[in-house]
Structure formats: structure tokens, C-alpha cells
């Protein structure tokens, strides 16, 4: 990069050359549906006209990846960046999904007000969970959050609420609003969820490099010392939790709009574990790892299921264990270590 060094590569503006990876990734993801169409012998125009086929199908798969990535990203802020062990993260996602479904289906709300309400719910639930933060630490916090998510998981399945929640079957029959309908215009939904993911990633990147995010990092490292330096760590943990909660709730919104059914399982422990697996595979605390982790998580499940059918679940378990054992720093963490940038 020194000006004196003769370079065979065309000179790029510094900003561009520093961000080649993410920009390339973004362009590849935008081109992806068209490439799939071309590969399958369809005209790329079929993507624009929302025709059924491989392109539409793989867009659907990647919409799921993007939603999972946003969700995993939010968990990485809580666990990876701030060091809060929560076993109830799925609650944040589930709340967003159910709120979206109920407001649109049962109350006939428009998309805009619904999203505003979901953001409000995201803030409120973080504060509700956050009040216990000064009193419970470590594993106790994990159990308290698990308890809260379990209550939600049970309550949405109760008979009394089933007119709104669909009980144990799940919430179905949600007609997505015309401006964001994954069935009528898959490409738009694909691009919107991609945009939400990219914006969330950029915002999170900025946050961890902000004075506030740096304190969150310090709390993960040594909360006692952070307190002694003069930081009211409770407030910082609450901020991280609130940002993560709003993000996860928005991912839940997209999930409710995309999926034909919102299952109560979105608030289950196994869905929190899914977030944990994604950031473990991608690299805890790296943020970017959450995106790669979500990709690996969804594609592994998809292809193992396609190739091995019945025994896919067992294989998936084996793959997870192998990844965590042999790639302990995750995809992005290992990559950074190789390039000598440290963890």
C-alpha cells in the first residue's frame, strides 16, 4: 500500500480497496438469483417476472439465510461482544414474529405501523429482561432468560390465546402486505431482507467500534474492572440488549412475513441454541461470523437433508461437534487468525 511500491493492480481508492470483500459479497448476492436462473437454463427475466423455478426456490432459501443471519448477529452482540449468556434469545425473535402476525392478521394493521410497533416491543422486552441484570449474573442470567422464553413459548400455545396465536399449530393465514409479498414478488423480498441484513451488519460494526461498544467489550473481558474504571456496566448491558432485541424482533417480523406459518418453536430453547450454533460456527464476537454461520447452518441442514434424508439430523449433530472441535474460532475467527489480525 506504500505509494513507492510499484503495483500491477489498478489503483483503487483506499475506501474501495479496503472494503472489496464485503462489496464483492453484496454484489454476488444481488446477482445470485440471476445466475441461478441462467444456470438452470431459464431466462434471467424470469427472476423479474417472479416465475417459479430454481431461481425462485434458491431465493427463498437465501431469504431464510438472511433472516437467520440477522437473528444470529443480534445474539453475537449479546453473547460475543458483551459476554451476556442468554438462553432466552429466541424470545426476542418470537415476539417480533407473533406481533407481526397478530397485528396484520387479527387487527388489519398496515406494514409500516406494524414495524414501528415491533420496534417498540423490541425495546420494551429488552427492558423487561434487563431489569434482572443487576441481580443475576452468568449462569443465573441464562436460566432466568430461559425461563422467560419458556413462559412465552407456553403462553402462545394456550387455548385462550389460540384465536390470535393459532395455539400449538402456529399462526397461519397471514396475508403479507402487497408492498412486501414474498409470493407475489420474491425478488423484492429477497432484496429487502438482504438490505436489512447488510444495514444491520454495518450498524453493528459501527457500534462495536464506538465508545459504547468498546465498553461492552470491556464488560465481556472483565466486568469488575470496567465498574472500577467508572462505567455503570448495567446501563451498557441494557443498551446492548436493547439493540439486540430490536434487531431480533425485526428478523422475527421478516420471518412472519415470509413463512406460511409461525410455529411456537421460534421461541423455544432449540431456536436459541440455533443462534449459538451459528455464531460458534462463524466465530463468536466477530459479527461477520454470524452471517457466515447462518449460511453454513441453513445450507448444511438443507443439503444434508437432500442427500441423506432420514439420517440428516444425526449427521448434522456430528458436523456441529466436528466444527466446534476443529474450528474452535469459527469461520471468520480462524480466517482472521490466519491473517495475523488476532481474535
Amino acid at each position: 500500500m506504500t505509494p513507492a511500491t510499484p503495483s500491477t493492480r489498478p489503483a483503487l481508492p483506499g475506501w474501495l480497496s479496503r472494503n472489496l470483500g464485503p462489496l464483492g459479497g453484496l454484489l454476488a448476492l444481488i446477482a445470485f438469483p440471476f445466475v441461478v436462473a441462467a444456470q438452470s437454463g431459464d431466462s434471467p427475466v424470469a427472476v423479474l417476472t417472479n416465475e417459479s423455478g430454481n431461481a425462485k426456490f434458491y431465493q427463498g432459501l437465501f431469504i431464510e439465510v438472511f433472516i437467520l443471519a440477522i437473528y444470529a448477529l443480534s445474539y453475537d452482540l449479546v453473547l460475543g461482544v458483551t459476554g451476556l449468556l442468554s438462553f432466552g434469545h429466541a424470545l426476542f425473535f418470537g415476539m417480533g414474529a407473533y406481533a407481526t402476525g397478530i397485528l396484520i392478521k387479527s387487527f388489519g394493521w398496515e406494514l409500516g405501523p406494524t414495524i414501528v410497533a415491533v420496534i417498540g416491543i423490541g425495546v420494551t422486552q429488552a427492558l423487561a429482561v434487563g431489569v434482572v441484570l443487576p441481580r443475576v449474573k452468568g449462569v443465573t442470567f441464562a436460566l432466568v432468560t430461559l425461563g422467560m422464553a419458556s413462559v412465552f413459548h407456553i403462553v402462545v400455545q394456550t387455548h385462550e390465546l389460540s384465536p390470535w396465536t393459532g395455539g400449538d399449530v402456529g399462526l397461519q393465514g397471514l396475508v403479507p402486505p402487497a408492498i412486501l409479498n414474498p409470493n407475489a414478488d420474491r425478488l423484492r423480498f429477497y432484496l429487502v431482507s438482504l438490505a436489512v441484513m447488510v444495514l444491520a451488519w454495518l450498524a453493528y460494526k459501527r457500534f462495536v467500534d464506538s465508545p459504547t461498544g468498546r465498553v461492552c467489550n470491556a464488560i465481556r473481558e472483565n466486568e469488575g474492572r470496567a465498574l472500577m474504571l467508572g462505567y455503570n456496566t448495567f446501563v451498557f448491558k441494557l443498551i446492548a440488549l436493547t439493540i439486540a432485541s430490536v434487531t431480533a424482533a425485526l428478523a422475527g417480523s421478516l420471518h412472519a412475513l415470509y413463512q406460511p406459518i409461525v410455529s411456537p418453536n421460534v421461541a423455544s430453547l432449540s431456536f436459541t441454541v440455533a443462534a449459538l450454533l451459528m455464531i460458534l460456527m462463524g466465530g463468536v464476537g466477530t459479527l461477520t461470523g454470524a452471517l457466515f454461520g447462518a449460511l453454513a447452518y441453513r445450507l448444511l441442514a438443507f443439503f444434508l437433508d437432500r442427500w441423506f434424508g432420514q439420517i440428516a439430523d444425526v449427521l448434522l449433530g456430528v458436523v456441529y461437534i466436528a466444527l466446534v472441535l476443529f474450528v474452535p474460532y469459527g469461520i471468520v475467527g480462524t480466517w482472521r487468525r490466519r491473517r495475523g489480525r488476532g481474535a
Binding site: F207, D209, P211, T212, G213, R214, V215, A218, L229, Y231
Partner: peptide
């Protein structure tokens, strides 16, 4: 955290700006 960051955090704690979550540190 880096040696610099350890000391920087100690400085930041007693100066205004710790809540500028939108800005680079």
C-alpha cells in the same frame, strides 16, 4: 484487549462521550 485499549478505556470512563454509540471511538 490491546494495551492501548486498556488505558484508553480507563481515560474514556471519566470523560464525556461513552454513550456516542454512532461514532467511531
Amino acid at each position: 484487549l490491546s494495551v492501548l485499549e486498556n488505558v484508553r478505556l480507563a481515560c474514556q470512563a471519566v470523560q464525556p462521550g461513552s454513550f456516542r454509540f454512532w461514532e467511531d471511538h
